[in-house]
Amino acid sequence: MTENVVLFWRLAITRLLRAFHTLIVAAILFGSASVQAQDNDRSVVYLAGSGNITLDQHIQNLLENYLGNQQDLVFVSDERAALTGNAPIVTIGPRAFSRVRQANRNAPVLAMLAAQDFLKEFATRSPGQVSGIYYDVPLLRQALIGKAILPQATRIALISTTNSAELYDTLIDQLPQYGLEARLFVVDDEKQLIPTLTRALSYGDFLLAAPDSAIYNPRTIKHILLTAYRRNRIVIGPSQAYVKAGSLASGYASFPEMAEMAAGYLQEFFKTGNFPEPDYPASFQVEINQQVARSLNIPLGSSEEITRAVELLLNNKRGQGDE
């Protein structure tokens, strides 16, 4: 019995020493990176990764390219995020943002790969100190992608829960300027999703999907897409991933576009101490699913042609507004 107790305590002490050693090494590496940046008279920008090594490295490379030699980018662990002082932290994805906010409520944070409905409230509560580059696409632009593909379309079907209905408020007011109208169909019981969707598809020329995880998620998307196609209706949005799953098309911002905008936000922060308000990138591209188009007998132009058609619709309306 005594030997077992001694063995237990030896193992416990060994584990504690290993953990302590790991913390010491992390602190040395973290401090060395900061000191090196200071010695080079460059500002430090910390990166909180998504956990996807390939994605995180890609974002880092793009940011380094647009920032040049002005800032040093240093990856930071969740534990060390509490010790970054006034240096800005770029978070990659909503989970990284949430972890950093839990670790350090006072850190200036620039969020990448986060949608508007996730980030907006945080930015409103901490203006200038919390900002980001929205990952999703303005719903008006998504609606106009549908219009570019189906020029004869006049009515758009929308589905939401009671809690997410406000996602569509601005869009519904904007659509009449483009010869479009929309009706919102609300479903709060998952069992009513398909019956509600069926009514929505009877109304709309196409279904416009917002980044609303309560409605559009891996569990429901197959049923939504099959129901739409059986009624010869297309789905637009909410993202590139869903185009691969079977949506006909969706807008998206490229990683270089988002990284260039993020670099500009960081440069503004180092000049003024504040980030600009969160916003969408200036330009977008269109992902399309040609196989779905063929199965529905819909003639589909190239991604570039659809993008130009959307820009033309937006620019014509802006020009009329200036008159």
Rank of each mutant, 00 (worst) to 15 (best):
Asn289Gln: 12
Thr154Trp: 01
Ile53Trp: 11
Phe255Val: 03
Glu257Asp: 14
Gln320Leu: 13
Pro195Arg: 07
Leu113Met: 15
Asp56Met: 12
Asn104Arg: 04
Arg101Gly: 07
Arg80Ala: 15
Ile28Met: 08
Phe75Glu: 10
Phe97Arg: 03
Leu150Gln: 05
Leu226Gln: 11
Glu277Cys: 06
Val292Ala: 13
Pro281Trp: 02
Ala209Phe: 04
Ser247Glu: 04
Leu158Glu: 01
Arg80Ile: 02
Arg80Asn: 15
Arg99Ser: 08
Asp117Thr: 11
Asn297His: 14
Asn52Gly: 12
Pro256His: 03
Asn163Trp: 07
Phe270His: 12
Gly146Glu: 10
Glu181Lys: 10
Ser131Cys: 05
Ile145Trp: 03
Ala96Ser: 14
Thr272Asn: 13
Glu64Pro: 05
Arg308Asp: 10
Leu296Lys: 02
Ala309Asp: 12
Ala81Asp: 09
Ala309Tyr: 03
Ala87Pro: 09
Ser50Ala: 14
Tyr203Thr: 01
Gln129Ser: 11
Asn297Tyr: 12
Ala228Thr: 00
Val44Ala: 09
Ala19Lys: 15
Leu62Ser: 08
Thr2Glu: 07
Ser202Leu: 11
Ala165Tyr: 04
Ala87Cys: 15
Ala82Asn: 06
Ser98Leu: 13
Leu193Met: 13
Gly132Lys: 09
Leu248Lys: 00
Leu248Pro: 04
Ala209Lys: 00
Pro211Ile: 00
Leu23Ile: 11
Asn86Trp: 02
Glu268Gly: 03
Leu83Glu: 14
Thr91Gln: 04
